[in-house]
Amino acid sequence: MENALVSVPHNWYLLLSSLLFCIGVMGVLFRRNVIVILMCIELMLNSVNLLLVSFSAYAQNADGQVFVFFVMVVAAAEVAVGLALIVSIYRNVASTDIDSMKKLKW
């Protein structure tokens, strides 16, 4: 396959992943639905993955890709446990609003 990287500067990938990361952060702050917040966290994880893969490709080093693989493993575990938590919280308060989980304070 032809090497596409020659025509795309690496900085663009940096820019793209930063933007994606900030969208994720903003989403976490904006939304009240816990499920969407969890998705935004996934978005942030993916922006980091993209960055790792791009560095790995440009530096010709497969370590980065192995790391992305592990990030995916952790993300899968995290989502499974996170969603299970959301389900069990929903059973108790009948809501997925983050403001309904405010009991832990002074």
Binding site: M1, N3, A4, L5, V8, L16, N49, L50, V53, S54, S56, A57, Q65, V68, F69, M72
Partner: peptide, 14 residues
């Protein structure tokens, strides 16, 4: 993007 970056394996796994 992964495919573009020649990371075919990761693209599939992703």
């Amino acid at each position: 993007h992964y495919v573009l970056l020649n990371a075919q394996f990761l693209a599939i796994v992703h």
